[in-house]
Structure formats: C-alpha cells, structure tokens
Amino acid sequence: MQVIKKINNNAAICLDTANNELVAIGTGIGFPPVPYELENLELIQSTYYGVNPMYLDLLNQIPNEIFQVSGKVVEIFKNKINSSVSSNLVFTLADHINFAIERHKKNVQFENSLQYEIQHLYEDVYEIGLMAVQLIQTNLSIRLPKIEASNIALHLINAESVAQIATKTSHLDDTLEDVVEIIGKHFQMYIDKSTVNYSRFVSHFQYLMKRQQKGKLMNSENSKLYLSVIEEYPDTFNCVNKIKDYLIKEMDFELNDEESLYLILHVNRLCVREDCYRKGITPSQ
C-alpha cells in the first residue's frame, strides 16, 4: 500500500494495489515523509473507500478512539441490517458521538420525541443504538444516558435519506440558504459551504425541518439550561431570534425553547469553528 498524503500522524490517504484511493487509519502511518510504501499492513486499523474530502478534517478534530467505536457500530449496522452504506457514515457518526460526549460532559441533554417510534418501528436499529452506547462505555469509559441509543439509531436511520431531502426539496434549499445568510450577516463572517462544519450544520438543520414537517418537536425539562445558555451566548441567542422570526414569517414554524436551545448550540458550534478557520487557527476539538 502506498501512502500518498498525510492527514495526521495516524491517518493518511493511500493507494491500494489496484491504484484505488482510500483513507487509512493506523498508528504512525502518517509520520514518515510521503509518498512512501507501507509494507507492514498490520499497522492499519481501518480503511475507507469513497470518503467525501470535506469529512477528512474530522480526523484532526475527533479522537481516534471515537472513530474506532464509530467504525464498529457501522459494521454492526451493515451486517445486522444487511445494508450497504457509504463510508461517510463512519465519519458523520463519529462526529455525532463526539458531540454527544461533549454535551454529556456539559450536562446538556435533549429528549428525542421520536424515541417511542424508533424503539417500536425500528427495533433492530434501536438495538444497535444500545450496543453503541455500551461500546462507548467499554472503549471510552463514558456512560452516556440511554436516550443516546435512540439518537444514534436515528442517525443511522437517516444516514442515507438526509442528503436526498435537500436535493429533492427546493423549498428546503431556499430556507437553508436564507438561514445561513442570516447567520453570516449577523456575525459578519463568510461561511465556507465546502467544509465539514457547514455540512454538519446542514444535517442538524435538516433534522429540525423533518421534525417540524412531522409535527414532532423536541420537548423536555431544560428550561434552566436554556436560560443558562442564553446568558453564556447572548450574541448567538440574538442570531437565533432572527432565524426564529424568519421561520415564523416564511413557514409559520415557531420554535419552542427546546428547539431554540438546540439551534443556539449548533449555530454557536458552526460560528466558533468557522471563525477559527477564518483566522487561520486550528480548532483544538
């Protein structure tokens, strides 16, 4: 296997014997000067073909251990459901798990209004979500609440459908464009739509729209947390209020406090990372 481009010390873009490009993860494979021939293939922990380049920087943002857990979960999903999925799922699920861990450490929890449907209509996928929570506890020594099993299951269920929604629904495209413009103007910043940060925000916004279309919004007892987040991120709160005004006017869609909290966190996450990239600073996470 030929290593042709370093991503970090433990990840690289490689060519297999048939000259097909792939992403390989393995201890120290990105350390030697590239290009070079990797003879000891036992160093390789996992390989992924056809990964969208926008997801590669997640390898520099998310611990390798989380990618390993994500890879195991996706493999279980593929085998149990007998489904062929894109290699991108390993990357998006790793990002999902990483964010769940970040929220857990900050004691931020969301109720999943689709939990009952997931448990009873997608029993096999929900079981995988439970396995994922157990793998996270075993491999990362982090005990996530049981609700995260439903959240992970929902991510797997939507893995192939989320991107299709945006391409098929021009109205959603227009709404997303307007919301991103609101964010950009509010923070006076350019949001690069080719980055994983933008792709991550799009996915979360699409989930929000899907719940709205089904009339199933988030609902839990996070009022104290909502007030705390407003106090911590007042500028982001003002931005989200502009988005809320737009959604009411254009879609007759009013966000409740729980959905507003969810959106504040994701807008803040997008803008902090975009601001870092704009200034040439590499985010620590």
Rank of each mutant, 00 (worst) to 15 (best):
V240A: 06
E259F: 05
C14Y: 05
A11D: 00
V74P: 03
N139Y: 13
N151C: 10
G26L: 04
E111Q: 13
L247K: 07
D178Y: 12
T47V: 13
I29E: 03
E160D: 02
E177N: 14
C271F: 07
P33A: 08
V162W: 01
M189P: 06
P32Q: 08
A153Q: 01
V202I: 14
I243G: 03
N20R: 08
Y277H: 08
E117V: 12
T169L: 13
F31N: 10
L43C: 04
E65P: 05
T169I: 10
S161E: 13
K210G: 15
E148V: 02
K216I: 15
N10S: 05
L270W: 07
P63Y: 03
N238V: 04
K242Q: 13
L270K: 03
E123L: 14
A12N: 00
E21R: 12
P53I: 00
E65G: 00
K105D: 03
F91V: 10
F77D: 02
H120T: 13
E127S: 14
I4L: 02
L247V: 07
T92V: 04
F99H: 07
D257W: 06
H266M: 10
N20W: 14
E221G: 00
V51W: 01
P145V: 03
Y36L: 00
I128T: 11
L15C: 03
E160M: 04
K78N: 11
I243F: 11
Q212L: 01
I118F: 08
L58I: 00
S87L: 05
L114D: 10
S113N: 13
D178M: 08
V229P: 06
K185P: 01
N268L: 02
R200T: 15
I29Y: 09
Y126P: 08
V34D: 02
I136H: 02
R269I: 05
D252T: 09
I76D: 08
R200Q: 12
I44A: 01
Y48M: 02
N222T: 11
T175L: 06
V108M: 13
K80H: 02
L261M: 08
P35Y: 04
E221L: 12
T169Y: 13
K216W: 06
K146E: 15
A11N: 11
Q2V: 11
N158H: 13
N19F: 04
V90H: 01
E102R: 05
A163E: 12
N107H: 02
Q68H: 02
D235L: 12
V108G: 00
Y55E: 00
I182P: 03
V272L: 15
N88E: 04
T27W: 15
E117L: 03
F187R: 13
P234S: 06
N10W: 07
K210A: 08
A132F: 01
G129Q: 06
K105E: 10
K216P: 09
T195M: 14
S170A: 12
T195F: 04
Y226M: 06
N79F: 03
D174V: 15
L154F: 11
Y36H: 08
G184C: 15
D192F: 00
N219R: 14
D174A: 10
I76K: 14
E232P: 01
S113C: 09
I118Q: 08
V162T: 14
P32F: 05
Y226H: 12
Y126S: 11
S87N: 03
R278E: 14
G280R: 15
S141V: 08
N151R: 05
I142A: 00
F77V: 10
K168L: 15
N88D: 07
T47G: 01
S223A: 03
S170E: 15
F67E: 02
